[in-house]
Amino acid sequence: MNIINEMKLEFLSRSANEALARSAVSQFAAQLDPTLEELGDIKTSVSEAVTNAVVHAYPDKLGQVLLRARILEGGILEVTVRDKGVGIEDIGQARSPLYTTGGEERSGMGFTIMESFMDTLRVRSAPGRGTTVAMRKRVMPRLLR
């Protein structure tokens, strides 16, 4: 699939960067002319993916989080969030609704929200090596809405 546009952002796994990440992707996605609801779904999904990296990837230190957003042919937004942290032992369990290792301050709904708000979600992880979350959403051209 042809890449029309691409941006990359690299930051430390500090929670203050969650807002930066979703705002950057939101600005980038604006060129697809999404509806407010689509933009809200995209921002929330990016926030969930980046929060996972902040909370889980580097439990007792700071590490790098790499965010890449692409616009692909056909009005498709692709967002990839990658860390080099502890990884996920059981991806199936991590993706199931309400499952969390984050305690009372987390809801365990992150992956469920990403799955529901985006068209596709792929998670690849290796314990000790890190996790990559890749998601895509097609933004309908306004003329076809």
Partner: peptide, 13 residues
């Protein structure tokens, strides 16, 4: 102006 799954935990808390 924005809420993600963290808001769910705040309501439940």
């Amino acid at each position: 102006t924005f809420m993600d799954s963290s808001g769910i935990a705040v309501v439940l808390g």
